[in-house]
């Protein structure tokens, strides 16, 4: 039946139009669904800093040295030189919460035995590939002479 070349080209043209139509329809249905699945980014200022009393067990867990930094956990330790150091407590391997380990004087991740030194640097040979994100720490003294720490995210983005 397709012996007539004009007929054949007309048919293949119609096939193409229908094919395009269905492709367009599929795209029109799938695109909004795909976009819907990606959650909107909550653009807010987010937490940039917290004030901590390092000796208050309600603020900094005395054993694990974990504190709350906005919507994520942070960790506060005394660095090798005796100065305060604060990091994000989210492990750079697969995002477990790290903790201070007194016996080894290191930061330890219980999920896959990741280790960091007190400068937040990942110990080679353990799973984490990068150092912990570091926060800036400033010591302050209020009127009553009580020492507190201002912990803030480094370079403001």
């Amino acid at each position: 039946m397709d012996r007539d070349p004009t007929l054949r080209s007309r048919r293949s043209f119609l096939d193409m139009v229908i094919g395009l139509g269905f492709t367009g329809l599929a795209a029109a249905v799938l695109y909004p669904v795909a976009r819907y699945l990606i959650p909107p980014v909550r653009s807010g200022p987010g937490t940039r800093s917290v004030v901590l009393d390092p000796d208050d067990p309600a603020q900094v867990d005395p054993e694990t040295r974990i504190f709350v930094f906005g919507s994520r956990p942070g960790i506060l330790v005394k660095g090798p030189g005796g100065q305060w150091k604060a990091f994000s407590a989210v492990c750079t391997h697969l995002s477990c919460t790290v903790r201070f380990q007194a016996e080894s004087n290191q930061i330890w991740c219980p999920c896959h035995n990741g280790l960091f030194d007190l400068n937040g640097r990942n110990i080679p040979g353990t799973p984490p590939p990068r150092p912990l994100e570091e926060f800036e720490v400033h010591e302050r003294e209020d009127e009553s002479g009580k020492k507190t720490l201002l912990v803030s995210k480094g370079r403001s983005a």
Partner: peptide, 28 residues
Amino acid sequence: LFGATPAGLRPEWYFLAMFYSLKLLPGH
């Protein structure tokens, strides 16, 4: 959400083989 990860955390048994492999692999 802000607590420390409990020590000895493990996935369900059918993910253990992958879990342990990831544990053995160093960062680099």
